[in-house]
């Protein structure tokens, strides 16, 4: 394959166009799974940290990243998976959180640090992404994908997803 000598900025720009297939307003970069990009004569090496163990979209995202780079002539791509530090929703930047909210998904609050059990404490209610009310209730801690929980807004009577704080 004819090697195009890409620079790191090009690679990051291209990866910024690769969307999470299940949350299509977030790019893989905004999602925080792209931890490191190294460009050398040997090609491009992308270090990724997967989100949930049970997320079936991880492999798709890797494939989508590869295809997007190939489409721009960057073919020598290798991926390395690194598990530590573990992925956290805290890595999603503020601008991307606003994109989530506009898409109808309540963005994640700060992830809980340490402490094993918080059984009795009720988590703070999550603001409705449609009307902003905090008069909402959690319907289920698990939603349509590993990264979401289901809530209901008592003010505007809408069910909505929350991107879990994790």
């Amino acid at each position: 394959m004819t090697a195009v000598r890409a620079n790191r900025d090009d690679v990051m720009r291209i990866l910024g166009t690769v969307m999470d297939p299940e949350v299509p307003v977030l790019s893989v970069v905004e999602l925080g799974i792209v931890r490191h990009v190294a460009v050398s004569d040997a090609g491009v090496k992308i270090t990724i940290t997967p989100t949930y163990s049970g997320c079936p979209a991880m492999r798709t995202m890797e494939q989508d990243m590869r295809e997007a780079l190939v489409a721009e002539g960057i073919g020598d791509v290798t991926f390395e998976t690194v598990y530590a530090p573990a992925w956290t929703s805290d890595w999603i930047p503020a601008a991307a959180r606003e994109k989530l909210r506009r898409f109808g998904i309540a963005p994640p609050g700060p992830a809980e640090q340490g402490g094993l059990i918080a059984l009795a404490r009720r988590p703070a209610s999550v603001a409705c992404p449609y009307c902003g009310s905090t008069n909402t209730e959690r319907r289920s801690e698990f939603g349509s994908t590993a990264c979401k929980a289901i809530h209901f807004c008592n003010a505007c009577r809408q069910p909505f997803d929350e991107f879990k704080a994790f």
Binding site: Y52, S53, G54, C55, P56, R139, S140, E141, F142, G143, S144, A146, I150
Partner: peptide, 15 residues
């Protein structure tokens, strides 16, 4: 909701 929850937990554990 529980169907989805148990499937989600299953996926995490299998992963």
């Amino acid at each position: 909701e529980e169907d989805i929850a148990l499937a989600n937990v299953a996926l995490d554990l299998i992963g």
